[in-house]
């Protein structure tokens, strides 16, 4: 038996555990009735058993991510950029947020040219904002494009 886990795996299991406990606490305090818990409680109990099984089982070699630190940091950078894009698009406008996300995203993904990323990002942001703006039945927050 071994309790050794990759840190990111431990973080993942901790998140699942915390979320499961929070969900059950919320559902049980809302209404302690079979109709309300018919899926949640059995699924949660099984999830807890499975977390225990995964913690106690011997980690197979593939469980340890073989990616380099550079790749992981690059992933995290792009993921952070993506989360920032999702949360800021309503603040700075969909057009501007899309433009900057695409520009920086292309650079993070390895493009060396100085002019291609902003040129592509500009064309992409204009096409996407105008096309989706015309298709969606809801108002879109924009800073530059109307």
């Amino acid at each position: 038996m071994s309790l050794r886990l990759a840190p990111s795996h431990a973080v993942f299991l901790a998140i699942v555990l915390a979320f499961t406990v929070a969900m059950n606490y919320s559902a049980i305090t809302a209404k302690f009735a079979l109709n309300n818990l018919v899926i949640l409680v059995p699924a949660s109990v099984l999830a807890l058993i499975l977390i225990g099984t995964i913690l106690l089982s011997r980690p197979i070699p593939e469980d340890v991510p073989e990616e380099s630190l550079r790749k992981t940091l690059g992933d995290l950078l792009l993921l952070g950029l993506f989360c920032g894009f999702c949360s800021l698009m309503f603040v700075i406008g969909f057009d501007v947020a899309t433009f900057f996300f695409i520009w920086i995203g292309i650079v993070v993904c390895g493009e060396r040219s100085l002019w291609k990323p902003p040129a592509f990002a500009l064309a992409f942001a204009v096409v996407v904002t105008t096309t989706f703006g015309a298709l969606f039945p809801f108002p879109i927050v924009t800073l530059v494009l109307q």
């Binding site: 894009f85 996300f101 298709l135 879109i140």
Partner: peptide, 23 residues
């Protein structure tokens, strides 16, 4: 992929907005 990845990621976000109409 250096162009495709950010472009499709942006389309994913726009698609997510298209389904809900909110943040």
């Amino acid at each position: 992929l250096r162009y495709l990845v950010p472009s499709v990621l942006a389309l994913c976000v726009w698609g997510g907005f298209g389904v809900t109409g909110t943040i």
